[in-house]
């Protein structure tokens, strides 16, 4: 198993200025639904650092998914600016954003979003087919503990297993950032903990910067930093002095 040394400094390298992965400035997103303007994001200034595991916490509709979509290059901002390292995402067109997603970002979604007609291995292969320096799909699946389920189709797997395939798919390209939108939202507590454990493993072993958004407050305990969201704004940011292992968390 080859684990690549992450680019930049690790969040855990104390005494040094941690490297910023994402930076936003006055980020605003306005949805126009039938003449009513909804401010999903109302001026967000945020920094995310290399190697950190950040939890974005907030109730539904607080704008955290919108933020994640914009960070991941899935959506355009209405106003404000976003940088990924030195690359200004807000200045990119659709093609540039696709390139960015392809090269740098791994996504994990609440509903796994596996392609039903492809096996676990093939779902991962979807990513490795188009990446520059991917792991082998088998390796990615081993990392999430699914080496024995590689040739199963989504319909033949439990929710937790499906989400782990989704994580394997996200990390297979060796992304610099892993963006997870309610990764445990569709899972029971026990399975959810297993999934979080995989995310922690990936974050620690591969040094992938990881952003987890959730409305489940219990999850905040595993983060390096917790960003509280409300009404499209950051309410406050907390640094966890002591983190809990997912196994110690329950809800």
């Amino acid at each position: 198993m080859s684990i690549r040394v992450p680019r930049g400094y690790s969040w855990r390298m104390e005494g040094r200025m941690p490297e910023r992965v994402f930076r936003t400035e006055g980020l605003t997103k306005v949805y126009d639904t039938g003449g009513v303007q909804v401010h999903a994001l109302a001026g967000v200034d945020l920094e995310l650092f290399a190697g950190e595991l950040a939890v974005l916490l907030g109730p539904s509709g607080s704008g955290k998914s919108t933020l994640l979509n914009i960070l991941g290059g899935l959506d355009h901002a209405s106003d404000g600016r976003v940088w990924f390292r030195d690359l200004e995402l807000t200045g990119l067109g659709d093609r540039g954003l696709t390139r960015f997603r392809r090269d740098h970002v791994g996504f994990v979604f609440q509903f796994y979003n596996l392609v039903a007609s492809l096996s676990a291995r093939e779902n991962v292969q979807l990513v490795t087919d188009v990446s520059r320096d991917p792991m082998r799909p088998e390796e990615a699946l081993e990392q999430v503990g699914l080496a024995h389920r590689m040739d199963h189709f989504p319909a033949e797997m439990s929710g937790g297993e499906q989400q782990r395939v989704a994580i394997a798919r996200a990390i297979a390209k060796r992304p610099e950032v892993l963006l997870c939108d309610e990764p445990t939202g569709a899972l029971d507590s026990k399975t959810g903990v297993q999934v979080l454990d995989v995310l922690r493993e990936v974050n620690e072993r591969l040094g992938t910067s990881t952003v987890v958004i959730t409305h489940n407050a219990a999850i905040r305990k595993m983060a390096h930093r917790v960003v509280y969201f409300q009404d499209g704004r950051i309410k406050r940011v907390e640094v966890n002095e002591t983190r809990l292992a997912p196994a110690e968390i329950s809800w």
Binding site: D94, R102, N113, V127, V130
Partner: peptide, 16 residues
């Protein structure tokens, strides 16, 4: 629809 969203999130180009 959601699979298309996924392919895009992964980084597949519109043309693909």
């Amino acid at each position: 629809r959601s699979e298309i969203g996924l392919l895009k999130a992964i980084g597949y180009f519109d043309a693909e």
